[in-house]
Amino acid sequence: MTSALYTSAPDPSVERHTFSVLVENEPGVLARVIGLFSGRGYNIESLTVAEVDSVRRLSRINLVTTGSRMIIEQIKNQLDRLVPVHKVHDLTVEGAHLEREIALIKVVGKGEKRVESLRIADIFRAHVVDSTDKSFVFEMTGRPDKIDAFIRLMEPLGLIEISRAGVVAMSRGTDGI
């Protein structure tokens, strides 16, 4: 049976971009950013936020989004227009950059599956941070696609819960934001 959901090919004009946004650490700033995305119909694939400069009271938002080239440009300009936003960097456009994510993954199982999950975790350099006689909680850090791959491998081995922090990102090289 064919379904529109599965037959439509992914739109080649849609790009994935990672933004780093430096904002004033004040109440409501995250609501402004999220409201901008929901109000204008943009996608948020991942969003992380934390204070990075307690003296100047700056927070950094790392944001992964998708859209056509024009939409991506709009997102940058719309973010830049918000009053408490200091800087907007489209890391995807600006060159080589790093993306890292931390995830906790709980796997429940016994016997061969349990051993297999531990073996794969070792290959992926995931750490066991909690265990019972039937379960492990793995902690792993890495590129988002590496975490995706680990999760796919855990699925047949008793995967029951995933908690991901979202992407943090930074440009390579000597330049600061």
């Binding site: 024009m70 440009e73 709009q74 300009n77 830049d80 227009r81």
Partner: peptide, 11 residues
């Protein structure tokens, strides 16, 4: 004066 007005509807 508004960067977001440029290339919003028409390139």
């Amino acid at each position: 004066i508004d960067p977001s007005s440029i290339n919003k509807n028409v390139r």
